[in-house]
Design a protein around this nucleic acid. Sequence first.
DNA 1: CTCGTCGTTGGAACCGGTTTCAAAATGGCA
DNA 2: TGCCATTTTGAAACCGGTTCCAACGACGAG
Lengths: 350, 350
Amino acid sequence: MEPLPAAAARPAGSPARIADVAALAGVGVATVSRVLNGHVGVRPSTRERVVEAIEALNYRPSSLARSLSLQRTMVVATLLPWFTNPSAVQRVSGIVEGLSGSAYDLMVFDIESEDRQRRAFELFDRGDRADGLLVVSTLPPEAEVARLRAAGVPCVLIDAVHPSFPSIAVDDVAGGEMATRHLVELGHRRIALIGDPPPEFRFEWSRDRTRGYERALTWAGIEPRGDYVREGTRLPHVARAVASELLSLPERPTAIFAASDTQALGAIEAARSLGIRIPAELSIIGFDDIEVAAYVGLTTVRQPLLESGRRGAKLLLDTLAGRPVEPLCELLPLELVARNTTGPAPARDG
Amino acid sequence: MEPLPAAAARPAGSPARIADVAALAGVGVATVSRVLNGHVGVRPSTRERVVEAIEALNYRPSSLARSLSLQRTMVVATLLPWFTNPSAVQRVSGIVEGLSGSAYDLMVFDIESEDRQRRAFELFDRGDRADGLLVVSTLPPEAEVARLRAAGVPCVLIDAVHPSFPSIAVDDVAGGEMATRHLVELGHRRIALIGDPPPEFRFEWSRDRTRGYERALTWAGIEPRGDYVREGTRLPHVARAVASELLSLPERPTAIFAASDTQALGAIEAARSLGIRIPAELSIIGFDDIEVAAYVGLTTVRQPLLESGRRGAKLLLDTLAGRPVEPLCELLPLELVARNTTGPAPARDG
DNA sequence: CTCGTCGTTGGAACCGGTTTCAAAATGGCA
DNA sequence: TGCCATTTTGAAACCGGTTCCAACGACGAG
């Protein structure tokens, strides 16, 4: 029973294992495990010997091995494309908020290509790297949906909708319509659109906003013009170039609806460098209401980015806590925020 | 040798294991593993039977178990506080860039409290959840440094310096001096400072910038005034409140040096709402040069945020590839970017 | 026909924890 | 002191993979 002082140190470079601690303390691994996890029923004197051994070896259990054994990680993962986008950042902020105070840690995985999307699901679809998933702005491939369901991995979608999972989203068609109608009501007839990239990663909100745009135009009796619709890209400098093109058309549009604030900012820069005054000569409306939008006075359609993350996190926590959550789609409200980048159409156009 | 068709399905809810595949294909687990990992030396007919079984069961290996066995995850983790801060986001963007094209996936872990910092290192300091670490804007506690070294976890520091690890940083004292001197050269004598939070998570660049500020004042023969120095907080609205206080002092400062662009924006808002014209009545200079800084015309001290991430990622990849990297501190260059928020001191102050 | 070689294969040990279960140690009481 | 109930304890099985190594089968040569 006397403590064994020298339990043959392991090769340098390998941290101590539970077996090393057990050997040093002269107990079995089960006892060390009990001490580590604060189980009752360990004699105080034994506990102390174990604690000493732990400290002597500077031991900490492998969280990986622990997860494998427990079938539980206490980690929630967020999968999202281009997560350094301002709107994505806002959503993640909400998720952080929603998770704070819970026992779960957040791990963020960026998807910047189809390849990474595959890798992401390879890592997470069995639920062994995270106990729950928040999938943002992307729709999992059907094969993954099947696997996630088979493995029983709780999963909540944000800014994407799938019948198998609870989803948080907004009505993008209505949003596009709202933005366009605002411009129409200001007297604009030549309204251009800067849309987002083609459906990558199966998320298509930009297309939906375009549909809303077309619907509002039709409703106002305005013929949609092909040369006014540009499916640009999410990158600001490309949006800027696209806007420059639009503003150099022989029949220059008097208003631009950008499918995201980031793109709207690009459009503003383009107008600036062409010497076009906003909103006197050109109205610009964005979508999202990212943080800088308020700062620079951008008119936009506000969607509750932060709230979407917060709400998604809450739903996921509910599921993880065993409170059943229906796979319903929750639509968050949109709101037009009129600031300084939209105004009445120029006179000669009225 | 004939294929066993029905290898007793496992309880629903559990994804297939390698043993299930082996049973269904009528081979040993070793063979399945060989097929999975593309090893040579498997008879084509056998390989085919295994592949069929894999597809029949929709099997995918547990990445967790795989990591445990291989002692390798092919994941790089980034640990950083408040990673939804614009400057942090920029750094992460750089990391994403630096890692793209490599075989490593990036996982981001947010540290928003001391508790989370502890959790972060609990998860990662044995190197079993990630093969390498990028620690940003925070200094690991010494105990963790010891553990990381003991476990041989490659680790690169960004925006933090520690003798044990390669570090990427800037000279914050020089930066603070550069900013303040710019104001001095414009004729300002009443120069206030909005600093950052007290040293949380052991990162102290704000204090260093304050030192640079004091040094520049002394150099110009200006007596530092206690009521002009406010250690604010990173949150924009608090910075705004602090700026309001400063601007309501009987002897109002004619210039403000904000230790980060985020805080500078808060100061600008405060000035705006008090009807103080920038830069005619008040000069404001920030630090970082975050993306919106250029957009709103903020004068600032530019530090290469993106580059810091890119460079850190490269160093880590080098280490992971076995190319030895010295634990040296790499200082990136700072640059004064004069835009529209700073100008000559008001006349009566000259 | 037998032997040696080489290409395939599967059993078992291992990665580092948790937990079950039965055995051992302890303590109370007659 | 002896017996039984009650802690305490550790060996072994398990989580789900990878890989070493020995054994197996087929084949060509002698």
